[in-house]
Simulated scan of single mutants.
Amino acid sequence: MRILRRGRRRGAVAVIGAAIAIAAWTHAGPDFAYSGETVAVAAPEASGDIASLLDQVTVVDRVDQVPGYERSCKKGKGCVFGPAWNDPTDRSGCDTRQRILSRDLRDITYKGGTRNCKVLAGWLQDPYSGERVDLSDVEIDHVVALHHVWNAGAWQWDSRKRQIFANDPIELRAISSSVNRAKSDSGIDEWLPPDPAARCSFVTQYLTVLVKYDLPITVREKNAAIGACAS
């Protein structure tokens, strides 16, 4: 990961073609390092909330794969973001998945005797596609994929911070299982919501998460963010 700049330069003149950014960076991660020259294509000026968010993030030319990511908490696995849906800061008695379902679904029915902690039925207006789906087709999406977050800097965090991140409501959305599979571990330079009307909102939330946790974006992600919100 090589840092190009923090945010955008206010009032900068758009450059036609490519701007050459020469940087060297020694990776503090496990067992590897690199340095060299990179080419960053000049992006158009951002505007509105996206411009404000982009002013607050570090822009890098790329995010490299860092060994050690294992989401599974089965015996012998890394469990690097902690047990699924277990928020160490929450005292409600409901696991994170059920709290997100309660927040995002409509016409909810709860299992009796669970203090409204177990959702039995409901439906979702998928925020990325606009489709209506029943609870059986709903999954919880990490807006910024956990594998991407690991590579972007979470490998340096302690286990408690990683677990807090994985359960932070700002980083979570209920979405349809089919959309979740399509999104997978993609960044915003690789995947955007199928509904064009949802793209800028998604990008805004994506950047908000990165700003909150001081994580970088790549040049390609920055360009994608600006393009998604251009209208």
Score class of each variant (00 low, 15 high):
Gly48Lys: 09
Val179Asn: 06
Glu37Ala: 13
Asn86Gly: 03
Gly29Asn: 09
Ala40Phe: 07
Gln56Thr: 08
Cys73Ile: 13
Arg99Cys: 03
Asp195Phe: 09
Ser159Cys: 01
Asp189Ser: 15
Lys111His: 05
Leu146Gln: 12
Leu192Gly: 00
Tyr128Ala: 09
Pro193Ile: 01
Ile50Glu: 05
Thr109Val: 13
Ser72Lys: 14
Ile188Gln: 10
Arg8Met: 12
Ala12Leu: 11
Gly93Ser: 09
Asn151Val: 00
Val41Ser: 06
Glu131Pro: 00
Lys75Tyr: 06
Ala24Thr: 13
Gly36Lys: 09
Ile226Phe: 02
Leu105Asn: 07
Arg2Glu: 12
Asp49Cys: 02
Gly48Glu: 11
Pro44Arg: 11
Thr89Arg: 10
His142Lys: 06
Gly11Asn: 11
Cys117Glu: 10
Lys161His: 10
Asp214Gln: 14
Val66Lys: 09
Gln205Trp: 02
Arg199Tyr: 14
Asn86Trp: 02
Asp104Glu: 07
Trp150Pro: 02
Ile20Arg: 06
Gln156Thr: 13
Ala228His: 01
Glu221Ile: 12
Ala12Arg: 15
Asp141Tyr: 03
Ser231Ile: 03
Arg106Glu: 11
Trp191Lys: 06
Val219Leu: 09
Lys212Ile: 02
Thr89Gln: 11
Tyr128Ser: 06
Ala198Cys: 08
Leu124Lys: 05
Ile108Thr: 13
Ile16Val: 14
Ile175Met: 10
Gly76Lys: 03
Arg162Val: 15
Leu215Met: 14
Cys79Met: 09
Trp123Lys: 12
Leu101Val: 04
Leu101Cys: 03
Ser186Trp: 08
Gly48Asn: 10
Gln65Cys: 01
Trp155Met: 08
Ser159Ile: 14
Ile50Phe: 01
Asp195Arg: 14
Trp155Cys: 04
Gly82Asn: 04
Arg99Ser: 06
Phe81Ser: 05
Asp158Ile: 11
Ala230Cys: 05
Val41Thr: 14
Trp25Met: 03
Arg162Asp: 07
Asp90Ser: 15
Val60Gln: 03
Ile217Gly: 00
Ile217Arg: 08
Trp85Ile: 05
Trp150Gln: 07
Asp64Trp: 04
Ile20Ser: 05
His148Pro: 01
Arg91Val: 13
Asp126Leu: 07
Thr38Pro: 00
Lys75Gln: 12
Ser186Pro: 00
Ile175Lys: 02
Ser177Lys: 15
Gly112Trp: 08
Gly11Thr: 11
Arg6Gly: 06
